[in-house]
Amino acid sequence: MSDGADITTMNMIQAINSALDVCMARDDTIVVTGEDVGYFGGVFKATESLQRKYGKTRVFDTPINECGIIGVAVGMATYGLRPVPEIQFADYIYPALDQIVSEAARLRYRSAGEYTAPITVRSPFGGGIFGGQTHSQSPEGIFTHVAGLKTVIPSNPYDAKGLLIAAIEDNDPVIFFEPKRIYNGPFDGHYDRPVTPWAKHPSARVPTGHYRVPLGQAAVVRPGEDVTILAYGTMVHVAAGVIAESGVDAELIDLRTLVPLDIETIERSVKKTGRCIVVHEATKTSGFGAELSTLVQEHCFHSLEAPVVRVTGWDTPYPHSLEWAYFPGPVRLAQAIARVMEE
């Protein structure tokens, strides 16, 4: 899928930065906006050096005003640009909800295609960094519920770059949530162990040039026969770690795109294994896991040998110092696997 360019080792931040760089070099209608994204290069450095390279009219800081960041992006898209606004933390996205839900998501529909909003809203999300209630949330379920939005969540550098390029080049609005806990290295949920850098992970081998990871296609991270685990973002690595430690022959699917969802990969897997566990960090009630578990029931009911189990964050705000009790970590997932296998 690469255009044959060099391959190098990148962490997720570098991969995201590379995606933006590659896209901006190819298409001068792409603009990057957001709080601190310009001179400073973003609080996580995802937009580092882009302003220096592409100028202040293509990469610029914005007021601390998420409604304005997205509203302005919709207007720029109407003009013919392809904005990639950053919301500094997903927890800050709510002031922009009306512009995302009522405007960007519905513009194509309400104007019967006269106007569109090809914007990609990038935002770091998820916990595991002691960010408390306001720097840890996983609000993807709010956006998957909205008609007209695509929701994408990468779990490694290779996918982050390829998916972001695909999202930017997509003509529909895309919510692109970046699991910030794994920006610098995969995280298996064992918070008391040393952090592993991306350099030791095969997915950190990233082409420097242009390539896409198509939206709407899940990845089978690990094939298996006994149980299907559906995950995305940080939880892919937590699940991989549990599978390795437990010895269960689980099939791990990284969804990568929540909407549109790769139902075929899910269906094929669950029909084979007969068991399914859905994992996400977000709160349980009305979370995306509810949709996944219903879809599995609708598509695979006669193959199921056990009820679908959800392993998720609790239905509480994200508690700062109690983070590791909230986070659906390896112990809870291992227990869930054991329960499902007993059925």
Binding site: V31, C67, G68, I70, G71, V72, A73, V74, G75, M76, A77, T78, Y79, G80, L81, Q99, E103
Partner: peptide
């Protein structure tokens, strides 16, 4: 309103 401003900025 912010959309108009965005168009003008573009």
């Amino acid at each position: 309103y912010p959309q108009a401003v965005g168009w003008a900025m573009a």
